[in-house]
């Protein structure tokens, strides 16, 4: 069962990152993805600095990375069938990220049942014991997300056919 989910994750995961223009614009990459767990990172970039004096990445990069990483964990938690929509996202900013450092987010889907999934995540810049931010989020399978998933599956099938 988990193997099936893993297969679907491996097939669909690249599309959910490479197919997301915002994730591409911020340079996100998936480090690992297993059912209910996701690790993603955002490389440091001068173009994404938020505080020019301190030289630190903008909080928005961390917000987007946590949202995306939590979404990936929820996606696996739901069985890798429907791409979920974020219901809410709460972030605690523990400290500024260090200049010049990549940010890595690790998310875990604590529970998913029916339509809702609960996810927790930590973002760090090298040492997960000294996080930059932590997040808690809830996701939901919506009509829009279901329709989007159907289109993704169709796109993959058509891609296989050529």
């Amino acid at each position: 069962m988990d193997d099936d989910i893993q297969t679907r994750l491996d097939t669909i995961a690249p599309l959910i990152v490479d197919g997301s223009p915002h994730a591409v614009a911020l340079g996100f990459r998936i480090d690992s993805l297993t059912p209910g767990r996701a690790t993603m990172s955002a490389p440091f970039s001068q173009a994404l600095i938020g505080d020019p004096e301190a030289g630190t990445l903008h909080g928005g990069v961390i917000t987007a990375l946590l949202d995306h990483c939590c979404g990936m964990a929820a996606f696996g938690g739901f069985g890798a069938r429907d791409t979920p929509a974020t219901l809410d996202l709460r972030i605690d900013y523990m400290r500024p990220a260090r200049p010049g450092h990549d940010i890595t987010a690790q998310a875990r889907c604590l529970k998913s049942h029916g339509l809702v999934a609960f996810v927790r995540a930590t973002a760090h810049d090298g040492d997960i014991e000294d996080p930059v931010a932590i997040a808690q989020a809830a996701f939901m399978i919506t009509r829009a997300s279901k329709a989007a998933q159907d289109r993704a599956v169709r796109a993959i099938r058509e891609g296989d056919g050529t």
Partner: peptide, 24 residues
């Protein structure tokens, strides 16, 4: 801008982009 799109299949803007905008 297209760079803000999170899910092109809906299409919907990335939740992180909207969150960051609200923060700004």
């Amino acid at each position: 801008s297209n760079d803000l799109v999170g899910n092109p299949l809906i299409p919907a803007l990335h939740g992180g982009a909207v969150g960051a905008f609200l923060e700004i």
